[in-house]
Nucleic acid binder design. Structure first.
Lengths: 198, 198
DNA sequence: TCCGGAAACTAACGTACCTTCGTTTCCAGC
DNA sequence: GCTGGAAACGAAGGTACGTTAGTTTCCGGA
């Protein structure tokens, strides 16, 4: 046997990403092995190397792509919002929650597999994440300057908000008691109540 | 060579726990290997088996012990607080934040290594964690009944609060810009502002 | 002081993992 | 219709891991 009828490079590469996402999310990167990954894709372990340089590179590529999508879609959401600060803040929060529900596997991996990366890749990902956090801090600062927000400590508040909003991807499952729109609404109010001027 | 001068069972067992905590926190359970663990303790890999039944049991024992400490110290903090609901709620939040700063390694592991456990151990730990979460939900319900809190959804709110408060153990380091007391204060206000009746 | 067991050592077993190699078959552009 | 490269295969190399076995030395209670 050799090349299989109907095989296609792009399709297999995508299947590998999808399978890796599922397995890393379920077991963690270190616990995932390439035999299981190949089996999930439906090919032999050695065939993986036609599409990826190695196990490590697979993870860092996936994480970098994820961070870029997160940053780009965040910018799009902010651009689509009105110019008023509170509109942009609501857009940021709403987008964050929605994104974390819809791509909770990518998010979970990006948050908790940083330590599995080689130092160079980690530095790149951390830089992207810092940029994301800085975006929220900028909005908070703006709100304070405008007198619309009351924030004791920008940095701690931003971290606390992000932790709260990110938490949803540890328990949310589609088809649960509450729908996405309701959860976005609930989290937006919880987050804003914590900082809104009274 | 054989038994080393000055060796002591209890001391070595404690050193193993301490070293495992450090290594699992840094690399994850699956990525930690017993050779590195033994080296960190200063003994040979096989000597570990004088103190632990195996790698898997080490993790589940550590996690169970951690959850019991968390639950017990929470009860103590609640008992020490005044009878008023808001006092107990503040005690819960303050204790949670402080505990998560002081034992951030244990907490981090307990939160993110659940998937590394065998199903039976995982069920035990999850049950303990559910009890902890239920404790907070109980306080929120009480507050709503008393008219002191405004909570749209008890369950989601409790999860959001816990995520926010737990987030501190991902970035807090002793000796940072803010002290423990300040961080407890900041987080308490952020959490309460989100739910307090206005 | 003596002795049983605790606690360490060295050596090694079997497995499982990531990766490489060489080969074979299929697809696509000319 | 040919042909070069893409994409799969089977087999295996080399390492690292968890764990066991057997042995040796030290501690602490009688």
């Amino acid at each position: 046997m050799a090349r299989i009828t109907g095989s296609n490079g792009a399709r297999t590469a995508a299947a590998i990403r999808r399978a890796a996402l599922k397995l890393i999310y379920r077991q963690g990167f270190a616990a995932m092995n390439l035999r299981d990954l190949a089996a999930e894709v439906g090919i032999q372990p050695s065939s993986l190397y036609n599409h990826i340089p190695g196990k490590q590179a697979l993870l860092s590529d996936m994480m970098r792509e994820h961070m870029e999508v997160l940053l780009d879609s965040t910018e799009a959401a902010l651009a689509a919002a009105g110019p008023a600060l509170m509109d942009r803040l609501r857009a940021f929060i709403g987008h964050h929650v929605l994104y974390h529900m819809e791509r909770r596997q990518e998010v979970y991996i990006a948050n908790f597999e940083l330590r599995a990366l080689d130092p160079a890749s980690r530095a790149r990902i951390v830089a992207l994440r810092n940029g994301y956090e800085a975006r929220l801090m900028g909005l908070l600062e703006e709100g304070v300057a405008l007198g619309e927000l009351e924030v004791a400590d920008i940095r701690v508040t931003a971290f606390a908000m992000l932790a709260m909003l990110t938490g949803i991807c540890t328990w949310y499952r589609p088809g649960g008691r509450l729908g996405k729109a309701e959860l976005v609404q609930l989290h937006t109010e919880l987050a804003l109540n914590g900082i809104r001027r009274r």
